[in-house]
Simulated scan of single mutants.
Amino acid sequence: MGLLTDENIEKRLLRFPDWEHRNNTLYAEFEFDNFKDCFSAMSRIAFECEAQGHHPDWTNVYNMLKISLSTHDENGVTEKDFKLADAIEAIVEVEE
C-alpha cells in the first residue's frame, strides 16, 4: 500500500474540508443534533468499516464524533484512509 507523503496528503485534503492531517492521521470532528443522530451515523460508519476491513480510532460524547484514521500496519496515512474518509463523508452528509 505505502505511506503517502505529507505533501500528497495536504493536496488531497483540499477535497476533504472537514478533515485535517494531525499526528500522522486524518482527523475530523462531526457535530450532530443529538446523541441518537450521532449514534446512527456511527452505526452506518461501522458497517462501512467492516466492508472495507479498515477501522478508525474514534470517540463519541453525546452529539460529537471524533475520528482519527491511519493505517496501523504502515504507521501512517495511506490510500485506505482516504477511501474510508470519503465513505464517512457520504454517510455524515446524509445524516445532516
Score class of each variant (00 low, 15 high):
52 Q>M: 14
3 L>A: 10
83 K>D: 15
8 N>G: 08
91 I>H: 00
71 T>L: 08
10 E>W: 03
31 E>I: 14
27 Y>W: 01
70 S>Q: 11
10 E>C: 06
96 E>W: 15
23 N>S: 07
82 F>Y: 02
81 D>T: 10
14 L>A: 07
89 E>R: 04
39 F>S: 01
44 R>F: 11
64 M>R: 12
70 S>L: 12
68 S>W: 15
27 Y>H: 01
12 R>K: 15
63 N>P: 02
6 D>W: 12
61 V>P: 02
46 A>Q: 14
96 E>D: 14
43 S>K: 08
96 E>P: 11
11 K>R: 15
40 S>T: 11
62 Y>Q: 13
48 E>Q: 14
9 I>M: 08
12 R>T: 05
15 R>Q: 15
77 V>A: 04
53 G>E: 06
11 K>A: 10
62 Y>W: 15
62 Y>K: 12
63 N>M: 05
94 V>H: 11
31 E>Q: 13
57 D>R: 13
58 W>S: 03
66 K>C: 12
17 P>W: 01
18 D>H: 13
76 G>L: 03
48 E>Y: 08
6 D>H: 12
85 A>G: 02
44 R>I: 07
50 E>I: 00
45 I>V: 05
85 A>N: 00
60 N>F: 10
29 E>P: 03
34 N>M: 11
54 H>Y: 00
49 C>A: 10
71 T>E: 09
37 D>C: 06
75 N>Q: 12
10 E>F: 05
53 G>D: 07
70 S>H: 13
44 R>E: 14
3 L>D: 10
80 K>M: 04
82 F>K: 00
80 K>L: 03
43 S>D: 06
95 E>C: 08
40 S>F: 12
86 D>I: 07
67 I>M: 10
31 E>C: 08
69 L>K: 04
40 S>Q: 09
95 E>P: 08
77 V>D: 02
29 E>F: 06
87 A>M: 07
40 S>K: 14
47 F>G: 05
19 W>Y: 03
61 V>Y: 13
80 K>A: 02
53 G>S: 04
29 E>W: 07
80 K>H: 05
49 C>K: 05
93 E>F: 11
38 C>A: 15
54 H>T: 00
49 C>R: 03
46 A>D: 08
20 E>L: 10
82 F>W: 02
90 A>K: 15
15 R>F: 11
28 A>S: 01
36 K>R: 12
8 N>E: 14
70 S>R: 14
69 L>E: 06
59 T>A: 09
69 L>Y: 08
56 P>Q: 03
8 N>P: 05
67 I>S: 03
9 I>C: 09
66 K>W: 08
72 H>T: 04
94 V>N: 14
34 N>Q: 10
80 K>I: 03
70 S>N: 14
58 W>Q: 03
64 M>T: 09
90 A>H: 12
6 D>P: 11
10 E>P: 06
6 D>L: 09
85 A>Y: 00
83 K>T: 13
16 F>Q: 01
10 E>D: 09
72 H>D: 04
43 S>M: 06
73 D>I: 05
83 K>E: 15
79 E>P: 02
91 I>T: 02
